[in-house]
Design a protein around this nucleic acid. Structure first.
Lengths: 341, 341
DNA sequence: ATGAAAGCGCTAACAT
DNA sequence: ATGTTAGCGCTTTCAT
């Protein structure tokens, strides 16, 4: 099995198999392989060599059971208000990639689970109580804020990506969505917008906050912000955006898309309608995914620092695993001005 | 913990805790909770109710150890020839999403691991031998074909997403990349291309096959296919593509991008140079990601059926777990004609 | 520095 | 239909 494994040797499946071969006890093998404490150097080297030669690897299940520690972190993605949304969403996927990096670096494996809270109200406690994971990262609150709050009361090693609410108990890392919404609206208004259309599903808390921020920034200027409900699933996105943008849009109108993917779809739709961006209609996105720099014209958007977010999530989880306290953190969004607004 | 959990009750952490409370033996509790065999209906209901009330959940590590089965499938992504490439690649992320769907549906959890084969030559056997997983899906062969072949000799429940080679032993699911390359080249040539530039890193086997297919289709027409090495990482992509397309491209030139992401970057670069697509330079992509329909003009590309691929992977893995044989399958690519070629 | 022995929490014979 | 018992493979006291 191992690159240096000699297939003619007898199979060594357990610590005691190896112990017998080495002429020592299982305890000694365990210590030797753990690099641990005070095993005679010669003994250790002999055992390690033997283990390599036979491609032996200690069983992690047995080890986990005995140590009461799995070295696995659960990543759970609740598919609540919009079932097909998130896993296919480029933002969450990028976040997952960075989480994998950060956790791997610290010696943890990842256990990935997608759940449908509508069908299984016990989704979070089931995962936490499974004994398979030392801690859990929840990617997105979806519409499960209450359930997460409840679990946080009795389970400490949990951190959540999402929106921060006043006085909440669970540790959350996320962008200041309301501020992001403000930045977007201000940019559009500075560019001459009189009517802003918010493209996105406002029942998601993050999106609701972006919408609220835009409304707050627009009101003093007498600018209206109208929600246009569009979901994020790849298959429905195109037609939904098209339907929403079917009204005649013209000078003074602007689109604030809740995500870059939505903005890209809006751009395609406007182009099909022969509406010029940004001279007739401005468009602004959210996230700053790689694609934002590649559209025509390049997309003006509100940047979330996904990498920083992922590292903050892992940092806080590690602190909580170590019994320390770790507070929520709200990351500042940044307006990236390009060609669409 | 559970939604109906009464926090005043004493903590019930193990089967025997619950058994004591219920006045039965641990064995009976185990059977009752497993829904298994012949437990008295009344007894089972009492035990199940008790378990719910106390938020009790059997420890999966102990169960796995005893049953010698974890109900977890490992998903491993080797980051070989181009370390930052794949996890951030939209294609692999979409595949992962579908795998999660298919595996969850069959009652399996996913354990995700990114590995750097360059730093750890034992990456595959280490995972297989960990005892944490019942089977493994390898996403992308990277430059690890030989290592995978070797592991396949002694470990059956493994399937791989990638390219199929003559007489290989490991079970692979993937697109016919060579045929895809042919389709792309033929389309470009039919559109008047005389010189094709292949944009992508040819050291990746899948890309090499696409390139080879294009060469094979182009040769009879006296059309040349020139490789332009570009990697896939989001940060480098833009500058690399720009550097590669710095030469003056004009009528009769065409670009065959190894992935849609690369094609999108090429489109942006050509636009910046004032080169019209497709009248001056044709562009064709590979994958047919959602973004392909949204570019300007919409991207002509070679479609891989990711969903079908994911389900085929899981189907074959399940068959192998059941001890049956399961052969490799090569999926047919499909040319999606849109506006760039 | 090493061995012996107990036990992590569960399941599955084998009883009855 | 339920209880009893013996492990799954490992780690870690406690001895020596």
């Amino acid at each position: 099995m191992s690159p240096t494994r000699n297939p003619d040797l007898p199979a060594v499946r357990t610590l005691s198999d190896l112990a017998k071969l080495a002429g020592v006890s299982a305890g000694t093998v365990s210590r030797a392989l753990a690099g641990n404490s005070l095993v005679n150097d010669a003994t250790r080297e002999r055992i390690v060599a033997l283990a390599r030669a036979h491609g032996f690897r200690p069983n992690q299940m047995a080890s986990s059971l005995r140590r009461q520690k799995t070295d696995v972190i659960g990543i759970v993605i609740p598919l609540g208000h919009d079932q097909r949304q998130q896993i296919s969403d480029a933002f969450f996927m990028t976040l997952l990639g960075h989480l994998a990096d950060a956790l791997t670096e610290r010696g943890y494996d990842l256990m990935l689970r997608r759940v449908l809270p509508d069908r299984d109200e016990d989704w979070l406690d089931r995962f936490i109580g499974s004994g398979m994971i030392d801690g859990v990262i929840v990617i997105g609150q979806s519409d499960q804020f209450a359930r997460i709050e409840e679990a946080a009361a009795s389970f400490r090693p949990m951190v959540v990506w999402g929106n921060h609410a006043q006085g909440q108990r669970h540790c959350v890392v996320g962008t200041d969505n309301k501020l992001g919404g403000k930045l977007a609206a201000e940019r559009l208004i500075a560019g001459g917008a009189r009517r802003i259309y918010f493209l996105g599903d406002v029942t998601a808390v993050e999106f609701a906050a972006r919408f609220a921020g835009a409304v707050e920034a627009a009101a003093p200027h007498g600018v209206t912000v109208t929600p246009l409900t569009s979901h994020l699933s790849a298959d429905r996105l195109e037609t939904e955006v098209a339907a929403n943008l079917d009204r005649p849009l013209g000078r003074g109108d602007a689109i604030f898309a809740a995500s870059d993917m939505l903005a890209v779809a809006a751009l395609a739709r406007l182009r099909a309608q022969g509406v010029d961006v940004p001279s007739a209609v401005q468009v602004i996105g959210f996230d700053d995914l790689p694609i934002a720099a590649q559209t025509a014209p390049p997309l003006t958007t509100v940047r979330q620092d996904i990498r920083a977010g992922a590292f903050a999530l892992v940092d806080r989880l590690m602190r909580r695993l170590a019994g320390e306290d770790a507070e929520s953190i709200v990351l500042a969004p940044e307006l990236i001005g390009r060609g669409t607004a």
